[in-house]
């Protein structure tokens, strides 16, 4: 088993996360897809850190985690406030850009 397998796994997880974003309507599930994508990236970072023998990759993954956490906080707050006003958690309902 090579280290590249980790990266392949990361790629697969990333794609699944991306597909989730595209295919699901519930905002929270879409968010979870985004989280999955970020985690996949983290896995890739960690693998590369191991490959290059440099912990910088792990530091970057660390940063990604922090930022993802902040993002989740804000994103969920938005979802909650939207839900309060519109009683709906579907991303399809925020279509005011429709022309």
């Amino acid at each position: 088993m090579e280290l590249t397998h980790y990266v392949v796994l990361a790629a697969i997880l990333f794609s699944i996360g991306a597909a989730t974003v595209l295919l699901r309507r519930n905002a929270i599930i879409v968010f979870m897809g985004v989280e999955l994508m970020l985690n996949a990236t983290n896995l890739a970072f960690v693998t590369f850190a191991r490959m290059h023998g440099d912990v910088t990759g792990q530091v970057l993954a660390f940063f990604v985690m922090v930022v993802a956490a902040a993002e989740v906080v804000v994103g969920l707050a938005i979802i909650v406030s939207i839900f309060r006003t519109r009683r709906s958690a579907s991303v399809d309902d925020v279509n005011l850009l429709k022309s």
């Binding site: 295919l23 879409v30 991303v91 399809d92 925020v94």
Partner: peptide
């Protein structure tokens, strides 16, 4: 028509 407003 392509601008359907859907984020997805």
């Amino acid at each position: 028509g392509w601008q359907n407003g859907y984020v997805r």
